[in-house]
């Protein structure tokens, strides 16, 4: 491992962004290099595209692959229908793209590509810039749909039904704050969950490696339990990968419901 310098394993090294091939592309003062992060975005895109391609046979009686793809589209469209109502069908392309991108990025980041020499897996969704942009896109769609559909009446979202007139200014401010916090909580939740899981896995992996290096006694005492724990945590992280993608898509559809139906 590149991070194992002098016997030390840096659990943060996995999050380091560096240009593929080492060349920086600076365009108009901005560094738009094709980094390892961009590479894994492309890998996610291609993997998802290939997965979806298997569902495009459009047979009356679906095969296994087509049934899997239809399961995902059905899952997203039923989530939108149950949260937003019939108007939610409009958002299926966006929420599906969001859900599948996060899900594939999370799972690809967990897969043990590191066993192939020279390949360093990278979790795109463990970066605040990525999750933040996705959260901002979701929030922007909510604002555009909300103001586009209801105009200034959209502000009535911040005054729940049955609020006493005296309380309206205070409630308005509180509701507005909670509304404005949404993109941050949305982006931070995914970023923190993925980062924490990957750090935990890397720390445990360091225990396993260092335990082996320190001799058989330490190996039995440290490596074995750490390795067993790693197996469990890896399974848990696979679950978290799916749950975080679901939470992101679910919250987006809940917010879209506010924008479309105003409570």
């Amino acid at each position: 491992m590149a991070a194992a310098e002098g016997g030390k394993i840096d659990p943060m090294h996995q999050f380091l962004i560096e240009p593929v091939g080492g060349s920086h592309w600076v365009v108009g003062g901005y560094d738009l290099s094709f980094t390892n992060s961009a590479l894994w975005m492309v890998v996610t895109l291609v993997a998802l595209w290939l997965f979806m391609l298997g569902g495009m046979k459009r047979e009356l009686v679906p095969g296994r692959w087509q049934a899997a793809v239809e399961g995902f589209t059905g899952f997203v469209s039923s989530m939108l229908t149950s949260n937003v109502g019939p108007a939610g069908k409009r958002f299926v392309p966006y929420v599906f793209s969001l859900f599948m991108f996060i899900l594939f990025a999370n799972i690809l980041g967990l897969l043990p590509f590191g066993v192939v020499p020279g390949v360093h897996p990278f979790t795109v969704t463990s970066h605040l810039t990525v999750t933040g942009v996705l959260a901002i896109i979701s929030f922007a769609i909510v604002l555009i749909v909300g103001f586009g559909k209801h105009g200034f009446h959209f502000f009535s979202l911040f005054v729940p039904h049955g609020t006493p007139p005296l309380m309206i200014p205070l409630i308005f401010v509180v509701e507005l704050m909670s509304f404005l916090v949404r993109p941050f909580s949305l982006g931070l939740r995914l970023f923190v969950a993925m980062t924490a899981g990957h750090i935990l896995l890397k720390v445990l992996a360091a225990f396993v490696i260092n335990g082996i290096n320190m001799g058989p006694g330490y190996a039995a005492l440290i490596t074995l339990p750490s390795f067993l724990l790693m197996i469990g945590i890896t399974l848990l992280e696979l679950l978290v990968a799916a749950i975080q993608a679901y939470v992101f898509a679910l919250l987006t559809s809940v917010y879209l419901n506010d924008a479309v139906n105003l409570h």
């Binding site: 962004i17 901005y30 560094d31 738009l32 290099s33 094709f34 980094t35 992060s37 961009a38 975005m41 492309v42 996610t44 895109l45 793209s97 991108f101 795109v124 970066h127 810039t129 990525v130 942009v133 996705l134 896109i137």
Partner: peptide, 10 residues
Amino acid sequence: SQIFWLLITF
């Protein structure tokens, strides 16, 4: 770079 490539891929 992150935002640029994310916008392209997404």
